[in-house]
Design a protein around this nucleic acid. Structure first.
Length: 136
DNA sequence: GCCAACGTTGGC
DNA sequence: GCCAACGTTGGC
């Protein structure tokens, strides 16, 4: 299994909306690196959901329920989406500040490449963030 | 194929 | 609202 982190601006698509929808297709990715990450996602992979701009924290855990397929919102074969469903809301959101301050997380792309919207996480990084949310 | 100009993202 | 990072575009 692989682990990922996706970003969304709460103004555009928040965790709350996601919970209400129960399931969503992750669209809007228009960056090749992020796209490649989407394509690498496998059924059952776990995905941290991060609120960018407003909130700036990891708020929940989602799961890949359908692997990549062409983005239905655009007539352009280059872009793909995956389907995600929420599996857990973090008891305490983990802020960017906390992630930055943590030694184990100093290499995550969230910090090093702030503009990337879909990024892989190592299992250790994933579980570290979950641990910081007081869920263990 | 290089590079300047420009647009977008996202933290502060 | 500003600015740094960085991707994309287009002229040469």
């Amino acid at each position: 299994m692989n682990f990922w982190l996706v970003k969304s601006e709460p103004v555009k698509y928040s965790w709350t909306t996601f919970l209400k929808d129960k399931r969503t297709f992750w669209d809007g990715v228009r960056n090749y690196q992020a796209r490649n990450n989407l394509q690498a996602m496998k059924l059952g992979d776990e995905v941290l959901f991060y609120h960018s701009n407003e909130g700036m924290c990891v708020v929940g855990i989602a799961r890949v329920v359908k692997e990549h397929y062409p983005d239905p919102t655009i007539d352009d074969a280059r872009w793909v989406v995956v389907d995600l469903e929420p599996i857990h809301t973090l008891k305490k959101p983990v802020s960017l500040e906390q992630i930055k301050a943590d030694e184990l997380l100093s290499n995550v792309a969230l910090i090093r490449q702030s503009r990337l919207s879909v990024m892989p996480l190592k299992e250790a990084e994933f579980s570290r963030i979950v641990q910081m949310s007081d869920e263990v």
